[in-house]
């Protein structure tokens, strides 16, 4: 049996004005990557913070948590010693250079100076920052800062890496680089827990994905299964569906699922040929016929409209 690194049972978190996490349960197995997806305000970050003790969970109803067998309520130091955390904001010390930033954190982990220097050299190389080792933080690009925060989270050789939106706002090159590094870490035995808005990211690196909405779990499973079980294979996106109005009203409903947003009408179906026939009568700039992806599942699960917390 594979060991469970994280066990969360019936955890809730209520803030004065909002229920951030609502009776949430999930488990993360060792050496897997578990992704938390959800719109802003879904409670992803709060859940991460509860795991490493930055937030406290509600006392009632009764809940249970085990991270490496420790409950964050009583053993935050043990959990933090075994974990590395990449917070949502890059909170680096701007006054210092890269090495000094990392040296300060190595003190928090009580790593002897000589070992720390070796580890820092290794991590800067691992995240391809060696050339910038002596630069000031203010000279770094967004992607470099992010990578440095990841390096910082890896200082103590964590068995669990927690990343809160690791690639938000980064360019595709950096995102792919970070994904590669995360895959490598997983291969070396690290368990990864991350939150993201990017469906692509979840699809690329997560073994299991949990879609959250309003503090609750909507669906959970391997990305491919989520696709296979929760949504039709293809979608035809139509910008101007005026000409189709009559057809839409008729017998089409049996073969396709129709989803209208303000500007775009989407026809979901497993029958590619059928969608193609419909598309055939339109100008090519008016439609886009493609495979469905995790984003479609996400939008189906969490709704298209914005909730007030977004």
């Amino acid at each position: 049996m594979t060991e469970k690194i994280i066990i969360v049972k019936n955890v809730s978190k209520t803030f004065p004005k909002v229920v951030a996490v609502n009776n949430l349960s999930f488990e993360v197995e060792a050496q897997t990557c578990f992704g938390c997806l959800g719109p802003n305000g879904a409670g992803k970050s709060t859940m991460m913070k509860i795991i490493y003790g930055k937030c406290t969970r509600d006392e009632k109803p009764a809940s249970q948590m085990s991270i490496f067998g420790y409950d964050p309520k009583d053993c935050e130091l043990e959990i933090k010693s075994l974990s590395g955390v990449v917070p949502q904001d890059n909170n680096l010390d701007d006054e210092l250079n890269l090495i000094q930033n990392l040296m300060i954190y190595s003190k928090f982990y009580n790593i002897p100076a000589r070992l720390a220097r070796e580890r820092i050299a290794y991590l800067l190389d691992f995240l391809e920052l060696s050339e910038k080792a002596n630069s000031r933080i203010t000279e770094l690009s967004g992607g470099m800062k992010r990578r440095l925060v990841i390096a910082r989270a890896l200082l103590n050789n964590p068995r669990l890496l927690i990343l809160d939106e690791p690639t938000t706002g980064l360019d595709p090159q950096v995102r792919h680089l970070i994904w590669d590094k995360l895959r490598l870490l997983k291969k070396e035995g690290t368990t990864i827990l991350l939150t993201t808005h990017y469906m692509e990211e979840a699809f690329q690196i997560c073994d299991t994905v949990m879609i959250m909405h309003k503090g609750q779990r909507i669906i959970e499973g391997p990305p491919r299964d989520l696709l296979a079980n929760n949504i039709e294979k293809y979608v035809l996106e139509i910008l101007d569906a005026g000409a189709l109005q009559d057809k839409l009203k008729e017998n089409m409903q049996e073969q396709v699922r129709i989803d209208k947003s303000q500007q775009v009408t989407r026809l979901f179906s497993n029958d590619f040929e059928y969608l193609k026939t419909i598309a055939g009568s339109m100008e090519s700039s008016n439609y886009y016929l493609r495979q469905t992806n995790l984003e479609d599942v996400f939008l189906k699960a969490t709704g298209r409209g914005l909730s007030e917390t977004q």
Partner: peptide, 8 residues
């Protein structure tokens, strides 16, 4: 936020 993610 960063410091509290380390064993402190």
């Amino acid at each position: 936020d960063g410091m509290l993610a380390s064993p402190l």
